[in-house]
Amino acid sequence: MTYDSPTPTSPKAPDTAQILNANRRALAGLIAIRVLVTALLVAGPVVVSRATGDTSFLLVLPLVAGVFVFIFTMYRVLYGLRVLQCARVLREYPLEFHPRVLKKHERWTRYGDVFEVRVTTRGQHGAPLMLAVPAAGRRGWPEGVEEGAWVAGDLPFGGVMVLPRTHAMLFLKPADWDKTARKREEADAERRARAQRARLMDRTKRAVMMRPGA
Rank of each mutant, 00 (worst) to 15 (best):
T2L: 13
K12W: 03
K12P: 04
A22C: 02
A22L: 05
R24I: 06
A26I: 01
A28K: 08
G29E: 06
L36D: 00
T38W: 02
T38Y: 02
G44D: 08
G44V: 08
R50S: 08
A51T: 08
D54N: 12
T55C: 06
T55W: 12
T55D: 15
S56F: 06
L59E: 03
P62T: 14
F68R: 09
L84E: 09
L90W: 03
R91P: 01
E92R: 11
Y93R: 07
H98V: 10
P99Y: 10
E106C: 03
R107E: 09
T109R: 07
D113A: 07
F115K: 02
F115I: 11
V117W: 11
G126A: 09
L129W: 09
A132D: 12
G137L: 05
R138S: 09
R139I: 06
E146W: 00
E147G: 06
G148A: 06
W150A: 01
W150P: 02
D154S: 13
F157E: 02
G159D: 07
G159W: 00
L163Y: 11
A168L: 01
M169Y: 07
F171L: 05
L172F: 14
D176C: 02
D178C: 03
R182L: 08
A187F: 08
R194T: 13
A195S: 09
L200E: 06
M201Y: 00
T204Y: 01
T204I: 03
A207I: 04
M209Q: 04
M209T: 04
M210Y: 01
P212Y: 10
A214Q: 06
